[in-house]
Amino acid sequence: MPAAELTALLDRADTPAMERPLAGAMVAGLFPAPSEPLDDAFAAALDMTGAARAENLSQAVAAVARHPQVGGVAWLARNAPCPIVSAGDGDHENPIQALADVQELRRRFGTVRGLVVILAGDIAHHGSAFSAIHMLNALGAFVRVVAPPTLLPPEIDRLGAEVFISPVDGLRGADAVLRYPLDLERSLGTLVPSAREYEALYEIGDAVPLVQTTSASLAAVIAACLIHVTGEAAR
């Protein structure tokens, strides 16, 4: 996504007084696995835009969808009768979460251009980390990933992220940290040896401010994306 489009989306998400532009329209939310934060944010986004919840895609002017498999949202978008906002495509992208994270950074620092942003933790299993790498690069931030090698996809540096295994080196001169928690159940013994080793070697301290996204900013981003895609569809 080009920087101008990203900035437009972020600007829209930052504008709280929206005129319920989707009043009378219906929007579907397709979330195969229940996720409370996502459900709440989606409901809030519906309130903000004035849209009603559609029960199926044929009624909808747009849908917010998450798919457990990589390429699943692209497949859905090819086959769906309306535009799809991706709320997660396997472990590969999660643009709305990343947009919310970037929006949070923008609020705190004014701009993300020139910031040194650390993505720390389980990069490989968080689509929002991939999406954040792309977005932060597009907006002119410097991206570092800090994680044990088993949690880094091959050639991640080619996507525009400087790779650091050690937090001590990675955090030097950094402005902000986005943290991707490790799913211990699925990772212990295969991707990291133990919880205590992970904490001892790779845990990020509080020397650099941690950026955390609120449900409200996620909702604002979903609303902005819905307005964006329906506007495009109408054109």
């Binding site: 990589v70 390429g71 495509d89 396997g90 472990d91 590969h92 992208e93 689509g127 991939f130 996809p153 091959p154 050639e155 991640i156 080619r158 996507l159």
Partner: peptide
Amino acid sequence: QMNAGEVATRMGL
């Protein structure tokens, strides 16, 4: 799912 490398990482596969 596909050849390992940059393209696979970009595609998330």
